[in-house]
Simulated assay, not measured.
Amino acid sequence: MKRSHGEGSLQRRGEGSWRLRYYVGEVRHALTFRGTRKEAADKLRSLLTDAGKGMHVAPDKRTLAQWADEWIALKAAERQHKTVARYEDLLMKHVLPKLGERPIQQIKPIEIQKLYAEIDLAPRTRHHVATVLKACLQAAVDIGKLLQTNPAATIKKPTASESDVGQALEQEKIIALVEGFRGSTLFDFTFLMAFTGMRRGEALALRWRDFNPAAKTLRIERALEYTKKHGLLFKEPKSERSKRTIILDDTLVALLLKMREVFLRVVAGAPDGADVDLSLVRVPEDWLVFPAPMAR
């Protein structure tokens, strides 16, 4: 005989603790609930109502940390390497230490609100943490079928305040910054980034074919990114707008020409200071401008 969704029972297990037993079709479920008898009865009634509407979510003991691992694995399958690594880093550092051991089905909105309030981070980073946590919990609703509703959905996320936006340095400060690297293997790298506004990953992904000394231009086509699981990866920018051509002044052109001469000598096997005609030597176009720090 097929059981009705209306069948259920309450059993007291201790002070403020109740065992809820009920059927969804032929499947028997049990759930421990903490609260008053009335609250337990209301919870049982809600479960049975959801079952009758086909909206029942089976009890599950998985913690937020366990679900986060599953979610990250699902996202990794989409091959969004850097994005997934960032999600994992934000959850591991700022969410899981506080809520990771909590069963995901027991997490309440007030706990998430408290988490946001206690995160001591820059506004933009706090906003990113909230965005990732909300997405993780929404996936538990849509994919994992662990939750009926997202406990973070009604919580107002921390805003990405303007105070977290980077500030442009004045010319004197830029010069002072660059001069601080003079004599270092990072001088050329720092100089180029400081006076072009390139991101670090874009500078590291530059190839010699991107440099046109006659036109005095440098083309940005890709970026080098590090991911925890997949190491270093070259990837195109997320939007076509990020692909751009930078106009260089004479100082930057001279810097790059000097750097390229060093590479030409490496290709030709000519030591520094040797009088060698480098006009016939060619640097392979796919060579990186900054393959590794070079000794002076």
Rank of each mutant, 00 (worst) to 15 (best):
K157S: 12
L232M: 11
L147A: 09
I175H: 12
A153G: 12
K157F: 05
R207C: 13
N150G: 01
V165W: 06
F191I: 07
H128T: 00
D164L: 06
F187G: 10
N150L: 00
R199E: 06
L224A: 09
A176D: 15
F211E: 10
A176G: 06
R209V: 10
D142I: 10
A223K: 04
P151R: 10
L206W: 00
G180H: 09
N212K: 08
G166R: 13
L169K: 13
L137C: 02
L232W: 11
D188M: 05
L192Q: 04
K229Q: 13
E240S: 06
A152H: 07
A215S: 13
K238Y: 06
P213L: 04
N212L: 07
L146S: 10
D210Y: 01
S184A: 05
N212S: 14
K238P: 04
K228G: 01
E162F: 02
A140R: 01
S242L: 06
T131V: 07
F191V: 03
A223H: 03
Y226M: 02
Y226Q: 04
A160P: 00
R209Y: 02
S163L: 08
H230N: 12
L133S: 06
T154G: 07
T149Y: 08
L218A: 06
K173P: 00
K173W: 14
Q171H: 09
S242V: 03
K243P: 02
R200S: 02
F191W: 15
A152Y: 07
T185N: 11
E179K: 12
A140V: 05
F234S: 01
I175D: 11
A203Y: 02
H230D: 14
G197H: 11
E236I: 00
V132S: 07
F195A: 04
P151G: 05
L224E: 14
T131R: 03
F189I: 11
S239E: 12
L204V: 07
A214E: 15
F187W: 15
L233P: 00
L232K: 07
T185G: 04
K157Q: 14
V129E: 04
D164W: 07
Q171C: 00
Q167L: 08
E240P: 00
T196G: 00
R244W: 03
E172G: 02
R207T: 12
Y226E: 09
L177I: 10
F181M: 07
G197M: 07
A203F: 05
E240R: 03
L204C: 06
S161Y: 06
K145R: 14
L186H: 11
L232H: 11
N150P: 01
A223L: 01
Y226W: 10
D164E: 14
L232D: 12
A160V: 02
P158H: 14
T227K: 07
A214W: 13
G231F: 09
I246G: 05
A139I: 06
K235A: 02
S161Q: 13
W208G: 10
G197T: 12
F195W: 15
T196L: 02
K216D: 04
Q138I: 00
V132Y: 14
T149H: 06
R222S: 01
L177M: 12
K229W: 08
E172Y: 12
K145P: 00
F189K: 08
R209E: 14
I174D: 07
C136H: 10
M193Q: 11
V129I: 01
R209D: 05
R199Q: 08
T196H: 05
Q148R: 15
A139R: 15
L233N: 03
A214D: 15
Q138F: 01
T190N: 04
L169I: 04
G144P: 11
P158C: 08
E202L: 09
